[in-house]
Amino acid sequence: MLDDRARMEAAKKEKVEQILAEFQLQEEDLKKVMRRMQKEMDRGLRLETHEEASVKMLPTYVRSTPEGSEVGDFLSLDLGGTNFRVMLVKVGEGEEGQWSVKTKHQMYSIPEDAMTGTAEMLFDYISECISDFLDKHQMKHKKLPLGFTFSFPVRHEDIDKGILLNWTKGFKASGAEGNNVVGLLRDAIKRRGDFEMDVVAMVNDTVATMISCYYEDHQCEVGMIVGTGCNACYMEEMQNVELVEGDEGRMCVNTEWGAFGDSGELDEFLLEYDRLVDESSANPGQQLYEKLIGGKYMGELVRLVLLRLVDENLLFHGEASEQLRTRGAFETRFVSQVESDTGDRKQIYNILSTLGLRPSTTDCDIVRRACESVSTRAAHMCSAGLAGVINRMRESRSEDVMRITVGVDGSVYKLHPSFKERFHASVRRLTPSCEITFIESEEGSGRGAALVSAVACKKACMLGQ
């Protein structure tokens, strides 16, 4: 009897593995994704193909990295998701002549009506938060230079001027797309009239992360975010950046690689679950690469896999709870928690219980395998993109072996128990001629924006502006 049951459990697990095998990517698959990513990057950089390229390769006008001589107080704003952060950054000489960066910050959550109302409502709310922060720190009387981390696709015309191309991540505030974001912020500050600010720089969160990590390690020339969304930036040779005049030196390019796949480059790798996630998203047909990796989508992918296993009578005796059938019910943090389970399955059992399920031991094991399959594919897909960037940098610099540091931020990278190990191992397999160091950014977005502002202020002083 026991043997029969054991055989049935083994057969069930084997069927589960057959279904989950769809998520496995072979090294040849990853090399294919990497080569296609490089081709799209090239198209994004070139003037004649930029418009139709899915990977936009947006110039950021960040050319210099901090040298350690900029000092002063800077205000930093960070808008990239449902939370908005205001930070005071003091850049100065530390002990023994070292450079020191001290920060104080406060988080504000953005109400739904500000995210989806008008641009005026959104930026009025942001300036209200700045006003509140300055009151708390008794700094209303000071006109501070301000660095703005704005983590949406922007076409820069200068370091302090950028046109919002399109909202992502659930934002829909009308009247912002096609307009200068810094102008919208300046107008809102003017409307309030109770404080003055000098907006000197606007950067993407990947750029802010790279600059913040450069402060720790001067070989950091790539910034990457794996959180709600997924994106990367890197220092490109100016001669390859056709959208900006000049051939000397390097400029940081914001790849906006989340949109890779929007022209069909990933079609052969998309599964039924991916198509369902895409169809029910706020932007169907867009940001397809990001939807395979980002935390906004990972939990939902797992939920759809679990429903398939229920329908195949391989999980929960073929019956799903009402909660499990509800879109968004299986949160991405559950994926991390399930994979963090120590082996007694308590954590998995508790999560499934909150979803109205009474799982068996085998159910718990199957749910864990589903989570591992989805998150491992995410790590491997992400590795193909980064390997594409790094191999490109090595080739354009004609280096036999390139040493490089990548600064990384984002909740999936930082909080998932195995993502970074799987990701690092896969990147290294795909970049055999590179020695890569990964560092995690601390308060990256805010500190990085302030350091970019410090560079901009120093330049302005040198130019006598």
Rank of each mutant, 00 (worst) to 15 (best):
L2R: 07
K13T: 11
E14A: 15
K15E: 11
Q18G: 12
F23C: 07
F23R: 07
V33Y: 01
Q38Y: 03
G44I: 00
L45N: 12
L45G: 06
H50Q: 10
H50V: 11
E52W: 10
E52L: 14
K56T: 04
P66H: 01
V71Y: 00
V86A: 07
K90M: 03
E93C: 11
V101L: 09
H105M: 13
A114W: 15
M115C: 13
T116A: 13
G117D: 13
T118Q: 10
A119S: 07
M121G: 10
F123I: 03
I130D: 00
Q138Y: 10
H141M: 07
H141T: 03
K142N: 14
P145T: 04
G147S: 10
P153Q: 14
V154N: 03
L164P: 15
N166G: 13
T168C: 10
K169R: 12
F171L: 13
G193H: 15
G193A: 07
V207D: 01
I211C: 01
T228H: 11
G229Q: 15
N231I: 02
M238Y: 08
V241N: 01
E248K: 03
E256R: 08
G261H: 02
D262F: 10
S263K: 13
D267G: 03
V277Q: 13
V277F: 10
Q286N: 15
Y289S: 15
Y289L: 15
G294C: 14
R303L: 04
L307G: 03
F316M: 13
Q323L: 10
R325S: 11
E331H: 15
T332L: 10
S340H: 07
K346R: 07
Q347I: 10
G356R: 03
I366S: 03
R368E: 03
C371I: 03
V374N: 01
A384Q: 04
A384P: 05
A387Y: 01
D400F: 02
V401R: 07
I404S: 04
T405N: 06
V406D: 00
G407V: 08
V408E: 09
S411T: 08
V412W: 06
F419D: 01
L430E: 03
L430N: 11
S433V: 08
I436K: 01
G446Q: 14
G446S: 12
A449G: 13
A449Q: 09
A456R: 03
K459D: 05
C461I: 13
G464E: 13
